[in-house]
Write a protein that binds this DNA or RNA. Structure first.
Lengths: 239, 239
DNA sequence: CGCTCATTTGAGGAACTTCAAGGTCAGTGG
DNA sequence: CCACTGACCTTGAAGTTCCTCAAATGAGCG
């Protein structure tokens, strides 16, 4: 809880959003909850933020989010755990328009900004009571949890595959999740991806090089920009 | 859907439940939803079953459960996926008192009986409308999904550990989930456990032998019965 | 007893990690 | 403009863990 005093400090920072790109909170929110003015008003009464975080800053420990649900407005958020041996695992990435913070403190995951990011804090209790009055809200919340459950289960399945397959799957999924743009601009570091896929950065690098040599992807001038050239081949590599 | 015709065949089988052990549907249900008579009545109007399944029988493909949520009454249920290469992954085990079938058909998991099992089929729509009227029900459902999400995330974390650590964690978690009895009677096959942990049966066997040699666990006369001797040591092995 | 199925054990090979070094790129100061 | 720095990524060679294949052992059952 201690940390939340910091998060809820208000909106001085909100004017500096240029470096983070556009901050269309309302648009993202509408995409999720539908375009209903009174609903939007009820929701905005429950929310704090958006709060900005620089890359690698800790947004919360999941003990902290007992009272708050998080909603990503811009950037990428990761939830991860560093175990005693020092190895880090990234459990999940969250993109704009996604909720996080469902899970109670059991796992003691740390929620961090994987890129510069903007996050909305939503009072959990208020949202729950809103959901009990409005079936649409309840539906959105249930769908958000089951979607995340589906992703977590896919993640489990992915961990039983080879490194090359994991890389191919990750890149393809990310490309889809980011809207199937011409180029895939990977927003997070290779270290983050490696920790998500359960391999070392070296193995990840070798896997990507391997995919490139096979002509499935190509690196483009700009850093961290990829071109997925052979979708059929990629799908085959995903096995 | 085709398969459901079979599942919903009625209650001739219900009398044969002795070989499955006690079938206290109501008790399990009450444990989850609370001890409310009118609620129980509403719920029983929505359910079909309990339906019995023998070990390794397919209960449903997750396309089938679009309309039904499943509730385990007795035995152990597994959800798993066989990929083209022929390797199988067990995504999750479900014990009595647990719901499954939240996730839409995306992953095309197959839901199977890991032991002889009894399963209740609950009309999804009816449950949803019940939830929109009764906040308690909505709460139970949301909690069920977030609990499963937490387990899936722990599963992801587990896959980044060594084989020995995975085995130790699995056995300890199972022991807790089964109520911390004196002995741990492992209900599922080694093959199922191995596929859940993402290792081969050989590696699993070696890991268990290893734990035994270290004095952390002991095999007891009866097959598949274990004694967790050194909980402190186990916790250390879980890392 | 002899069958089947599940588990255990052993030896060799593949995939991934570790450790160490080299390369690339953006920002910084001369 | 150029060299320097630090963060990040790539590449290579040796070492570990786990997998694969094969065979042995053990448990349950007619």
């Amino acid at each position: 809880m201690a940390n939340l005093a910091f998060y809820t400090t208000p909106s001085i920072e909100i004017n500096e959003t240029k470096i983070f790109g556009t901050t269309d909170t309302a648009a993202h929110f509408a995409k999720v909850f539908g375009d209903n003015a009174s609903l939007q008003r009820s929701l905005s009464a429950l929310q704090r933020g958006p709060v900005r975080f620089y890359r690698d800053n800790v947004i919360a420990f999941d003990d902290d989010v007992a009272d708050y649900l998080l909603f990503v407005v811009a950037g990428v958020v990761r939830s991860c755990k560093v175990c005693k041996s020092g190895t880090r695992s990234v459990v999940s990435f969250y993109l704009p328009g996604e909720f996080l913070g469902w899970v109670d403190a059991k796992l003691s995951l740390s929620i961090e900004a994987a890129t510069d990011a903007e996050v909305l804090f939503i009072k959990r209790k208020g949202l729950a009571s809103l959901a009990s009055r409005d079936a649409r809200v309840a539906n959105v919340l249930l769908r958000a949890t089951t979607n995340e459950l589906a992703r977590a289960q896919e993640h489990v399945l992915l961990m039983n595959k080879s490194a090359k397959c994991r890389a191919a799957t990750f890149l393809t999924d990310l490309w889809v999740r980011l809207g199937k743009a011409q180029y895939l601009d990977v927003p997070m570091s290779h270290q983050d991806i490696a920790d998500y896929l359960g391999v070392t950065i070296e193995t990840l690098s070798r896997s990507i090089t391997d995919l490139e040599r096979s002509g499935l992807i190509a690196r483009v001038a700009c850093q961290r920009r990829l071109l997925l050239q052979n979708h059929f081949g990629l799908r085959r590599a995903m096995n």
